[in-house]
Nucleic acid binder design. Structure first.
Lengths: 225, 225
DNA sequence: GTCTATAGTCGGATAGAC
DNA sequence: GTCTATCCGACTATAGAC
C-alpha cells in the first residue's frame, strides 16, 4: 500500500516518531537526540525511523514540516482576520492595535506554554545553527507571520511596511516575547520562579501589552503626520 | 610543575583548547562538537583534552568559566560606573537614562559582533537545555548585570527595583536586544541581509535606543508620581 | 609533560527473519 | 509491512612510548 490511511499502523508509527522527535530534538538537539531514544519514546523499533523517514535527518526534516504545519494551523485564524482587515478600504487605528495585541498574546501563549515550548526549542536551535530544516519552517510559517505583522505595525505608526525601519521595529517588538522563551532560565532564576505557568504568563503578558502600547503609540505620535 | 606560568606550553594548550571549544560548542552544541574537531582546531593532540580538563565535559565547564570571565571583563567598566552612580545621594534622571543606554549599546555590541557571537551561542544553548555550566555563567556574569539594570530601570521609572514588575520590564527590554541575536536567521532573511555587520548593527541600535526611550519615558510618566 | 596508537563504547544504518 | 540482530563507523578515553 503506497498511501497510508489515517489510523493505519504505519500512519500511527509516523506520528509517534515525529512526536517523540519534536520532544527529543528540542531538548537535546539534532546530534544529542539518539535514534534509540526517539524510537523508545515513540514505542517503535529502531528500524522504523529508517523505514518511514529513510534516516535520522529525514525524521528531523519531517519534524520541521510538522512544526511548520502546526504553526500555520495555530495562527490561521488570526492571520485570516488580519488579511480581511488589511483588505478593507477604511481601517481604524483601534483595529490595528487590537489585532497586533491579539497576535502578541497568541504568540506569547505558544512560545511559553509547556505543550508548545518544545516546538520553539527546535526553532531556536535552528536559528543558532540553521540546517535544511530552517527554510521549511521560515517560508511556511514565521515569514508570513512577520510580514503581516510588519504591515499592521507600519500601518499603525505611519511608515512604509516594506521599509527596513518597520521590519526592525517589528522584530524588536516580537523579540520581547521571544526573549521570555529564550531567556527562561535567567528569568526564572532572577524572579525565583520554578516554571512559567499560567500566573507567570499572565504577569509577562501584562508587561508585554503595556510595552506594545507605549511603543506603538509613541512611534505613531512621532511618524504619523 | 603544578602551576602553569603564562606562556608555558601547557598554558597555551589550555587556551587554544578553550578557544576552539567556544567556537565549536557554540556552533554545534555539547554533543555536536567532537573532541577530534576541537583538538584539530586548537592544533593540539586529542589526548590533551583529557590531560588538561580530564574530559570533554571538563573542557565544556572550563569554556563556561572562560565565558563568565570574559563577560565580567567586558562589562566591568560600565558596571563600575553604574555602581558609583547608584551610591550617590543625588541621582539625576538624565544620568539614569544615559547609563541604561550605554549598557544597552554595550550588550547589543557584544551579542551581535562576529567575534563575540560564538559566546552568545553557547549561552543560548545553555538556556535551551541548562547543564552544570549554566549556574557558572549566570551567577558570575548575567545575574549581576540584570540586577543592576533592574536597579537603574526601577529608579528611573519610579518602581521598586526588587519587584517582579520591574524585573519583568528589565527582561523585556534586554530581550529586544537578545532577539536580534537569537532571531538572526529570520531577520537576515526578511531584511535581505547577508550578515549583521557594522551598518546593520547601526540600524538595529537606532531602533533599540528609540524603543528604550519611549518605553522608559512612558513608564516613568505612568509610575513616577 | 607530550603524543600516538588503541581499547572500549555508542549510535546509525541495514540485512534478513517473520 | 514490521521487527530483531548485527554491522560498521565514529566517538571518548586511556595505556604506554618518548
Amino acid at each position: 500500500m503506497s498511501i497510508y490511511h489515517q489510523g493505519s499502523k504505519g500512519q500511527i508509527a509516523r506520528e509517534q516518531l515525529i512526536n517523540a522527535g519534536v520532544e527529543l530534538f528540542g531538548e537535546y538537539g539534532l546530534h544529542g537526540a539518539t535514534t534509540r531514544d526517539i524510537s523508545r519514546l515513540a514505542n517503535q523499533n529502531i528500524a522504523s525511523i529508517a523505514y518511514y523517514f529513510s534516516s535520522k535527518e529525514g525524521l528531523y526534516l519531517a519534524v520541521a514540516q510538522w512544526i511548520a504545519d502546526f504553526i500555520q494551523n495555530a495562527l490561521s485564524e488570526i492571520l485570516g482576520e488580519m488579511e480581511v482587515f488589511l483588505a478593507q478600504e477604511e481601517k481604524t487605528a483601534d483595529d490595528h492595535l487590537r489585532l497586533i495585541r491579539k497576535m502578541v498574546l497568541t504568540y506569547s501563549y505558544h512560545l511559553c506554554h509547556p505543550d508548545t515550548m518544545r516546538i520553539s526549542k527546535v526553532i531556536s536551535r535552528e536559528q543558532l545553527s540553521p540546517t535544511e530544516a530552517y527554510p521549511v519552517i521560515h517560508q511556511q510559517s514565521l515569514g508570513p507571520m512577520y510580514r503581516i505583522m510588519a504591515k499592521l505595525i507600519g500601518g499603525y505608526i505611519g511608515l512604509d511596511p516594506k521599509s527596513n525601519s518597520v521590519n526592525i521595529h517589528t522584530h524588536a517588538i516580537m523579540g520581547e516575547i521571544l526573549a521570555f522563551r529564550i531567556n527562561k532560565e535567567t528569568i526564572c532564576s532572577v524572579l525565583n520562579w520554578q516554571e512559567i505557568g499560567e500566573d507567570e504568563l499572565a504577569s509577562i503578558n501584562l508587561v508585554l501589552i503595556e510595552h506594545i502600547e507605549l511603543l506603538l503609540n509613541g512611534l505613531r505620535a512621532k511618524y504619523h503626520g
